[in-house]
Nucleic acid binder design. Sequence first.
DNA 1: TCGTGTTGTTGAATGCAGTACAACAATACG
DNA 2: CGTATTGTTGTACTGCATTCAACAACACGA
Lengths: 195, 195
Amino acid sequence: MIRPARGVGRPRVSSRETIAEAACELFLEQGYERTSIAEIAQRAGVSRSSFFNYFSSKGDVLWSGLDERIAVAVGVLGEPGAGEWPEQIQAVLATILEGLEPDPLALAFGNAAAMGLEDELQRESALRQGRLATALSEAARAAGVERIRADVLGAAYAVAVLSSLRVWAEGGAGHGSPLAQLQHALPRITDLHWG
Amino acid sequence: MIRPARGVGRPRVSSRETIAEAACELFLEQGYERTSIAEIAQRAGVSRSSFFNYFSSKGDVLWSGLDERIAVAVGVLGEPGAGEWPEQIQAVLATILEGLEPDPLALAFGNAAAMGLEDELQRESALRQGRLATALSEAARAAGVERIRADVLGAAYAVAVLSSLRVWAEGGAGHGSPLAQLQHALPRITDLHWG
DNA sequence: TCGTGTTGTTGAATGCAGTACAACAATACG
DNA sequence: CGTATTGTTGTACTGCATTCAACAACACGA
């Protein structure tokens, strides 16, 4: 994590927010692929080296926010007994989307065409979906659910989370909340627990 | 596509099979990440440039076989009326795994640890799963299924296909067939069509 | 036999992502 | 004022992927 500017050592000159803003501007102006890290750094007023002090990759600018939330959720799902009841699982999933504000990722979903991001988003979304699905499946299996059913369950929940996020972001990320979308989707999946 | 060696023009010196074999040898010896395209080309007896005449990337060596099958399936799913009945969808999915023989991808699944491929496989599997899921969801929606249910349905079917492939390959890819795995998984999902 | 068109091979050059690292700058603290 | 700590920067390097021009090997017809 990034330490506070005040304290020991040289204070930071920039911030994740500043760099992310510069990056998003460029993504909108000329597309994601056509924007190099060097350009982002230049617009943000730092060196290319420093970019990597704030983000580990270009994609990290878009995904770091969601990734942190997913990592927390995956951690919780790994604890014993986390997959016993549908309510438990659904509560964990809610924490992923809870209080989510418009961020670079939401902007990317909302302007995927302008940024030339359709493929990239599909690709990276699938990765997060897979991560979540795996954790969910393992939690379900630990609770005694048979493997294939657990896989289906995990995939269904994971797609619901990512879909909710996408729908919310495509709508402009100003109106409503991704949680509302999720609450609408979850009941359909609950049936899968028993069958 | 690659044209036959006999015909007009200079005949090919190598083949996808030759290069794929060289690549797999190196993957097993020293891992996937640690193997550069230059090394693969050298072992296969061609230049680095020529590698790209046969494969579009290092990952393509592993995935081109499955990608072609998925592309066909996605094309079929895009035709009108392709998602009307569960039997239709399941028949299309069967064509993806039908007659699949041990190939670089199966070898990779079976030796993921030795090749240091766990992350890469998770990542790339998720991408294919997402592609399939999208096509399936759209076919279901075209058949009148409500959106969220269609998404869940598509995700469930897609994970079943990829899981079947993985289970088969992890078992050595010699015994059984991935189709058998799929036949075992599909009935659990059929319920989702009606709810 | 000799062009000619077609196709495959090769090397060189380029741009970009990501990593490693050493030199240097700016702060707090004793 | 020295020292430890932390942030910034430039440089160099590896590797992926693309582009392009030059060249090589074949079939075919004149």
